[in-house]
Design a binder for these strands. Structure first.
Lengths: 222, 222
DNA sequence: GAGAGAATGACCCATTTGCGCTATTGATAC
DNA sequence: GTATCAATAGCGCAAATGGGTCATTCTCTC
């Protein structure tokens, strides 16, 4: 059996002390991996990072962000592989990090075995994405933007503004549903959906679905 | 204790008999999964595929390819999740399949446990990519690597799969014009406008004006 | 208690849309 | 030379949409 010729040198940048310790212990406890250092910030750690084979980089760092960190490390030494670690798959910075050259993307809730798998796969030239990250990447590649489901709680406040129900219907319009689908989704009759949409058109000064969704998106109504 | 309300219905399309049997046995041996059917080709299996929750689809099929298969299945029932299975990570069809709407990508050498993981993650709304596939996807998103020759250009790459004329029509769609208005604007017949829009829908994988304009805006096609 | 708004539901009707087919032309590819 | 493809154009049809009008219920507010 062929072992790796030398231990894989791993560096960690994570501002949260507890999680940094968890990661450190995992690395140190794994044969074939050597912990070069565990840091709380990019600043002051660049030399070590540029000397690593793998960097596990938190995306949300104080000072220089993880995104800037990727770019800086890659600039110093493009051979370094950087795996980003984040809390939320819907983090907008996912794509900024990818653009900056990240080699993988994990969620903090990822199991330790998965983290180790990610390291070995990355060293072998692959990349690892947590499933919910991969989903977002595929969505973007397929052009299905980012739904970002959630609360229309903020009462945008404009006069002549849409009612809560109307915003709800508009959101579903933007998602491409027709009258019947919207009706079933929010448990009202298709005719009532038509009425809501009618009122939305009037308030937005449009006369078709597509005009409404364009306006909704451009004005960030949804 | 709450079990899943119903087993996940899995269908398989794989022309290589031995591997098809392997996959079938894995599915049948796993509690919570039910094998709807294992087929050697798309032709004749579409009804079953459209009724599945998950389809494991070989990409290199005789007759209709796995890519065409994804598109057909998604067209029948967009709720079906399709996981592609391929032999080679450098298969240029990876990106065609993603564009066609694939929900995941595995290599045939992927272990059975990974396949089952992929199914559960996909059912939960995630996506799974084998590391060497993920690598290629990241490369493309980062502007390195190429989505391979003849394959349709990806949205991230810029112009997308739309022809110049189609983009022109799409722009007018976003501006809220109807068929007749677009026709007058660019001096072609309304029927031709319909044809262009039809082709746009097909390429964007949508089925209505509003879906198309949403995608156009989010994807910055216009 | 009257009035205003909202949300709900319904009917009619013309137009628009989405998609099934087919077909010709010109340019490019192999 | 043939195959492919974009662009052009047409026909038919079912479904979806947009607009008009009317009505009921509930909740606020004055």
């Amino acid at each position: 059996m062929t072992q790796l010729p030398a231990p894989v040198r791993v560096a960690i940048v994570e501002d949260h002390g507890a999680y940094r310790n968890v990661l450190s212990e995992i690395i140190e406890a794994t044969p074939g991996l050597r912990l070069l250092g565990a840091f709380g910030a990019i600043e002051g750690s660049l030399d070590s990072l540029a000397d690593a084979d793998i960097v596990l980089m938190d995306i949300g760092l104080p000072g220089l962000s993880g995104i800037e960190g990727v770019a800086l490390v890659k600039k110093r030494n493009s051979a370094v592989k950087v795996i980003m670690v984040t809390n939320h798959s819907d983090d907008e910075r996912v794509f900024q990090a990818i653009a900056a050259g990240a080699d993988g993307y994990l969620l903090k809730k990822t199991s330790t075995t998965k983290i180790l798998e990610a390291i070995t796969e990355t060293m072998r030239g692959g990349a690892t994405m947590a499933p919910f990250i991969a989903r977002r990447v595929l969505d973007v590649l397929q052009g299905r933007g980012t739904p970002a489901e959630g609360s229309p709680a903020l009462p945008a406040g404009g006069e002549g503004a849409l009612s809560a129900r109307e915003r709800e219907v508009l959101t579903l319009l933007v998602e491409g549903m027709n009258y019947r689908e919207i009706a079933e989704k929010i448990f009202i009759s298709p005719d009532t959906v038509r009425n809501h949409i009618r009122n939305i058109y009037e308030k937005l000064h449009v006369h078709s679905r597509s005009e409404a969704v364009v306006k909704a998106i451009r004005q960030k109504l949804v």
